[in-house]
Structure formats: structure tokens, C-alpha cells
Design a protein around this nucleic acid. Structure first.
Lengths: 242, 242
DNA sequence: CGACGCGTTGAGCAGACTCAATCACAGTGG
DNA sequence: CCACTGTGATTGAGTCTGCTCAACGCGTCG
């Protein structure tokens, strides 16, 4: 009924069922879970928070459409974007075992996430052993992904970091069935810079440089990948997906 | 019979039972697990590997004594220390859901880890629901810890990173019952530098600087914390423990 | 004892940051 | 409809932190 499929990575198979996508490519259909867990669909406007650090931990959230960022923040006001989430990603798992959420999640655009109350999930795990395995696996994959970004941040110069980031975004779009060669970045330069541990001016310059090298074409948030191999050579290939 | 308790943080309550220490301070006694899981005690010489990326994922390892580092490595040879493990830490969880381990674990000194075969753990989870919860909680805590280091790496200058690192080490020693004011760093400057995304010369200079500021006293690997509050002020306080 | 690994320190350099100006675009209101 | 405004992105100039290269000291182990 809505969203005529636009050229480049917009709203996503909007009315298809959501799924839980695992690192190894497995997808756990949410319908099985829905039998045990009451799901509430939550819409978020761009900039709106899903949950904030300190709020009581009550539910996990499955991204259905749009995109989100997760932010870590320190007492003294320092702030860091630690990840970007797209359709199929389960948010809130990092707070399992705590009374309160440990980080912030904010919508980058108008988005929708499905709220899965945690107590109900725990009960459902008793009936659905694969759900328990799924959550454990998702957490492990998150650790691996974070560590592979730590490797990237610790070993690559600014320009290479940006290249690696673009390849990651491209791979994620491809995984969702969108073009890996032509897409719109959903986050601001500031968010990108924070995630990459750089300043936004540096990210901007790096993108311009990659453009000048004919590896990509970039205009504001629209990116076209012109030379994947060139990008890979810069980024040092390997990167674990979410 | 062995290890006369030395001045500063050596071998640890060597013959006491191991335990699984959780983020919230909970400790799960390993005796309960031992009834279901065959435990093999593995000694590792300094520099020896526990497991390597690519090897089949067969077991988790619980640090009993000594210390280990976890290393992420890229195809092109880039390498990054992603964490240091001490008594009570469960290693290998990041590889859950994979056929092969995703990273390397290497002993920093002569150490011992207890091998817990993963299939047996999975079976034990059916009898011990708190074990399942424990593993999930440990994974979530790992994610939070990694993210809090990402925050640190993304927002603090070299000297502040080193201060934050020392405070973390101190807190971990304190948590194990050792002195938080006087301890021996078990890792080389190179490993510290890799973890902190710096060069070893920079770490060395930072330590010397903290020494000159009378915040610490340092001679090679021996560290005394002289001014905790001063260090905290530099590091910006907050840091999530493992 | 000599060799090697590890740690410290110095000098010079460069990549990323800071500060600042300009441009592009979306949204608002006259 | 278009001027006005605010946010986000780009680009430039100059600075500084952390890196590179190199020398040297200390301690350990063969």
C-alpha cells in the first residue's frame, strides 16, 4: 500500500514480516516468537530516542524499518556513537542483566522498531530453545563486530577508516537486498566521525579524497561506489558483519 | 605448598576454587558446573596461546590464575589487542555460534585456565538455568565493556587513555582482593599501546608524564597509584568493569 | 659475558585537529 | 514566490599531538 520502491535503499520491504538476522546468515522468523511475546510496534521520528541510559531495562527492540544509532555516554558529557542499526538488528541486548539500560538508542530517520518485553522473552526462551540460542549468538556476534571495529580504529588511518566504513555500509545494504554500489548514508558526518573516532571535518576531507581518487562518488549523503577493489585495498579488506 | 603470598598481586588464591565473576558482582561457583561439565586444567607458559583464530571452537576457558590477552587479527597482518583477562574471566564466549574461534588468546605470564567443553556446557544449561543466564549476562557485560573502551578511545587523548587504563587495572586488582594502589602490569608496553590504540613510545611518555605529575610512581612494570582522584580527573572517571 | 628484548628518551615530521569562512539545502514566514 | 534562517557539509590555514626514526639504558637469559 505504501512506499513505491525508490531507487536507492529507502524504507525496505515495509509490510513484510520482520526477522531476526544472525551473523551466520540465519534468520529467525518473528512469527514463532509472537506466539509467546506480545509485540508492540513503535514508530520513532528522526532524532527521537528509543531508550536512554539509566531508564529501566524492560524490553528489547527489533529494527523493522529505518535506522538507529547507539550512543555511549560518560558522566562528564563525553559521547560516542558505538554503532548503527538497520532492519533485522536486535537492540537492547547489551543491557541484559542490568536493571537499567546502559546506553542510548536514537532514530536517524523516521523508523520503526518492534518492542519485545524482556520478561516475556525470558519465558519464551523456555518454549523456544532456538530463541535462547539466537540471543546468545547475537550477543557473541555483537562482541565480534565491536572488536573488529576496535581493530579498525587501532590500526587504520583516517582515510582508510572511512573506506572500511563505506564497505561495511555497502555490505549491510547488500545483505538487506539493496544496492551495495549506490546508497544514501542515513547518519550525519558528525555521527560518522564520532563512530570512527575522528572529527567531522576529517571525515569530510577523507570522503572528498576518495572521490578525487575515483574510488567513490559522493555528494552530501549520497554515495556511489566506483571501485570496490580499490576501497578494499585501502581498508585492508576483512571486516566482520553485524 | 606453593606461592608464598608476595607483596604485590602475584599468583592469587591459587588453590581456592575458581569462580565465574559477573558484572554485577555475582559469582557463580564452578563446583555446581563441574557436576555436569568435565573440567580440564590447562597450564600456559608466558607467550603460549590458549586458542587461535581459525581453530575449531570446542570449549570456553575460565581463567584460574595468571593473565591473558585477547588479540584480533586481520588478513593483512594488522593486529590489535582487544582485552586483558584475569582470574574469574570466561574466555571464548565471543566465538559462540561459530565453528571456529574468531580471535587469539595468549598467556601474558605463566597462567592456568580451566577448559569447559562447549557441548557439555550447552547440556549443563538445561539442568542449570542460572548457567545459561550467566553466560548471556557475561556476554552482555563484554559488549558494555568493549563499548566503554570505544568511548574512551574515541574521546580521550593519549595521556588520559593511559590514566583510564591504570584505573581500570587498579579496579580489577581490587576486585580480586589485591592492592589497587600498588601492582605489577602483566603486559608489555607494546600490548598496552595496541590496546589503547597508541604507539609504545607514546605510552611510555604518558606514564613518565603521570609520574612527573606525581599521580603515579612507575618503574618499568611496577606501578604505584599516588593520587587516585587526580587520575580520575584526568580519565574523566566513568568506566565499566569487565 | 654478550645478546636480545623491553623500556625510556630525544628530535623532527606529518596527520589529524582547531578555528574559521563559505556553500548547499530545507524549512519558515513574509 | 522569494528572502531569511539554521543546520549540515565542505574547504582552507595554521597548530599541535602523537608518530617515526634513532640512540641508549636496563635486565634477563642463554
Amino acid at each position: 500500500m505504501n512506499a513505491p520502491t525508490s531507487v536507492i535503499g529507502t524504507a525496505a520491504a515495509t509490510e513484510a514480516n520482520a526477522f531476526l538476522s544472525l551473523a551466520n546468515g540465519d534468520r529467525l522468523d518473528i512469527e514463532a516468537i509472537r506466539q509467546h511475546v506480545p509485540v508492540r510496534r513503535c514508530k520513532h521520528a528522526a532524532g527521537q530516542g528509543v531508550y536512554h541510559a539509566g531508564q529501566p531495562f524492560l524490553a528489547l527492540y527489533l529494527v523493522h524499518s529505518g535506522s538507529y544509532k547507539t550512543c555511549e555516554l560518560a558522566d562528564d558529557g563525553r559521547e560516542q556513537v558505538t554503532g548503527f542499526r538497520m532492519r533485522g538488528s536486535l537492540m537492547g541486548t547489551e543491557s541484559i542483566g542490568l536493571k537499567n539500560y546502559s546506553c542510548d538508542v536514537i532514530a536517524l530517520e523516521d523508523s520503526e522498531a518492534w518492542e519485545l518485553p524482556y520478561p516475556a522473552i525470558l519465558r519464551a526462551c523456555l518454549h523456544l530453545p532456538e530463541l535462547q540460542a539466537y540471543i546468545t549468538g547475537a550477543l557473541a556476534a555483537e562482541v565480534r563486530s565491536d572488536r573488529s571495529w576496535m581493530l579498525m580504529l587501532g590500526t587504520l588511518a583516517a582515510e582508510r577508516r572511512v573506506a572500511a566504513f563505506l564497505l561495511d555500509v555497502a555490505a549491510r545494504y547488500a545483505h538487506l537486498g539493496y544496492s551495495a554500489k549506490h546508497f544514501i548514508l542515513r547518519m550525519s558526518r558528525i555521527d560518522m566521525a564520532s563512530f570512527l573516532a575522528l572529527k567531522h571535518e576529517t571525515v569530510s576531507r577523507a570522503l572528498s579524497r576518495l572521490h578525487d581518487l575515483h574510488l567513490i562518488s559522493v555528494q552530501r549523503r549520497e554515495v556511489q561506489v566506483l571501485d570496490v577493489d580499490g576501497l578494499r585495498a585501502l581498508a585492508g579488506s576483512g571486516l566482520v558483519l553485524n
